[in-house]
Design a binder for these strands. Structure first.
Length: 490
RNA sequence: CGGGGUGUAGCGUAGCCCGGUAUCGCGCCACAUUUGGGAUGUGGAGGUCGUAGGUUCGAAUCCUGCCACCCCGACCA
């Protein structure tokens, strides 16, 4: 491992790339646009999955699994849905290879599929085609299903975690008897995402609604959580869609109501992906490496011993065993770095790079005094504490770190939401400090498009807690009733 | 998919213009001395020069195709 990484100031995207690679989170694979998520990175994803999965179950959802392949005819049934995804679909056309007679393995043209299969970019179509068979009566509703899966969107430009051709995610697909119930579900899951982002990832998010332009292909309404990265760019961290009856109509999914009438089912879908890993990395990490929130850190505490002799080592190990046992009782994940081939300084740097929230250093000096040294990753502070009651202190510190990095990110976001009242001011802020820009917009797609073309900024969302106020659109001067959030985005 | 760039040991590189089987640093292995912020010395291993062709007595070097990655654009979670 080489020393250090590029600083954020020097080159933010290089910093990100080096961090992902040097912290052992992921690497590029032999397949274009696809990544290998390495064990340490995957461990973080697993922690995210576990927390989210529990929240889904707690709100009444069950997991299921639907096929990777979707018949093309299904996929093309909902017009705007197809239009939105058509340009990035991988298509399976054949089911066999053969030897062409010269030792080359080629596609067997005789094994052409009668109907081509689309590798799912999302599963609405296959799921709604399935739901048709599951739903007859209002008594079959609601259906509250989630699936953890991989999806493929053939992206031209990829970045590890942020945009790859294949990624991991969860997609919830629910079916309801009424629009009100479906909308309530959409909002509930948005709250689940926001809660997860803020309380687990320690990333503050703005809950909002997408404009028509930014809406999911096939949805009536798309709700989102938007996060702000340290370079001032926004990142969509999760979406929850109210799909109306679009998919029910496309797939003819009807139910008999209490009144005995045939009605189309109301739908929602919602998802978050491994992109959250990108958000996590860019929200907290610094020039020394990753900074992980304790709740998602695969290793919460690392213990680095410092010794000269075997006797000292033995004494330290004895204390470490106690500390580890104590922590285990409190469900704190501890790693004892007993590698003999690296010196302490090297280990300090390595675990900082990997974002371990707390480090315990134990040396001969400490043993003599009955102390250990605790070092926080988030603010680099150190303290010497008694070995008595150490696990309590660790517990408190982990909790403090979780809150401290959230507060830091929140302050950054608050400082980087700028209210502007003119287009000149808008452009100036966008070029200079970046971040979210709160401005009046006349509500038309034309204006939105022009601003995007001229400045590369998009409307990230119309915040849900927006207060109404009279104003004038920064571009056209037309009347507006509320401000929306603009930003350049990932 | 358009424009630009890069590919040489695990990583970072020199050599390429001007053709003769490859330089240096980090890392790796062994041993010794070390250990409170990325140790030092000695010895050693490791290469289809991205890949497939072509030119040539001879190609990392010249020519062509392909692949991958990085930056900028269009598109997108």
């Amino acid at each position: 491992m080489s020393k250090g990484i590029t600083s954020r100031k020097e080159d933010y995207s290089q910093w990100y790339n080096e961090l992902v690679s040097k912290a052992d989170l992921a690497e590029h694979s032999a397949v274009r646009g696809c990544m290998v998520i390495k064990p340490y990175g995957y461990a973080i994803w697993e922690k995210m999955q576990a927390a989210l999965d529990k929240k889904f179950k707690d709100t009444g959802h069950s997991n299921a699994y639907f096929p990777l392949f979707i018949p093309k005819s299904f996929f093309t049934k909902e017009a705007s849905h197809v239009e939105g995804f058509a340009k990035e679909c991988a298509v399976v056309t054949h089911y066999r290879l053969k030897d062409d007679g010269t030792g080359n393995i080629v596609v067997d043209e005789d094994a052409k599929l009668e109907e081509e299969l689309i590798v799912r970019p999302t599963s609405e179509t296959i799921i709604w085609n399935t739901y048709r068979g599951w739903i007859e009566s209002y008594r079959d509703l609601p259906i509250l299903v989630n699936q953890w899966a991989n999806v493929v969107r053939w992206e031209m430009r990829t970045r590890l975690f942020l945009r790859t051709a294949e990624f991991l995610w969860q997609e919830g697909h629910t079916a309801h008897a009424t629009a009100e119930e479906a909308i309530a579900e959409t909002e509930q899951m948005l709250d689940v995402y926001a809660d997860f982002a803020e309380n687990w990832m320690a990333v503050p998010v703005v809950k909002g609604k997408k404009t028509e332009t930014e809406r999911f292909a096939g949805a009536l309404d798309t709700y989102c959580i938007e996060a702000l990265m340290q370079d001032g760019k926004a990142l969509q961290a999760g979406t929850s869609h109210f799909l109306g009856q679009n998919f029910a109509k496309a797939f003819d999914v009807k139910f008999t109501s209490k009144e005995g009438k045939q009605e189309y089912v109301w739908a929602t879908s919602w998802g978050v992906s491994t992109r959250l890993m990108g958000a996590l990395i860019m929200a907290h990490s610094d020039d020394a490496g990753l900074v992980l929130p304790p709740k998602l850190a695969p290793i919460q505490v690392v213990i680095v011993p410092i010794y000269k002799t075997d006797e000292e080592r033995a004494e330290i190990v004895e204390l470490v065993d106690q500390v580890v046992a104590e922590c285990k009782q409190k469900d704190i994940t501890v790693k004892f770095d007993d590698r003999d081939s690296y010196r302490p300084g090297f280990k300090f740097a390595e675990w900082e790079l990997k974002g371990v929230p707390l480090r315990i250093t134990i040396g001969a000096r400490d043993l003599k005094n009955g102390l250990v040294e605790l070092a926080r990753r988030d603010n680099q502070s150190k303290e010497s504490v008694s070995k008595e009651g150490l696990s309590q202190r660790i517990e408190i510190l982990l909790d403090e770190i979780q809150h401290a990095i959230y507060e830091k990110a929140l302050k950054f976001r608050t400082d980087n939401i700028t209210l502007v009242n003119s287009y000149d001011e808008f452009k100036e802020v966008l070029e200079g400090k970046g971040g979210f820009i709160s401005a009046h917009w006349d509500g038309t797609a034309e204006t939105e498009k022009r601003i995007k073309e001229e400045t590369k900024a998009t409307i990230r969302c119309i915040p849900l807690d927006n207060k109404l106020e009279e104003g004038q659109c920064i571009l056209t001067g037309k009347p507006s009733t509320q401000r929306v959030l603009f930003a350049r985005a990932y």
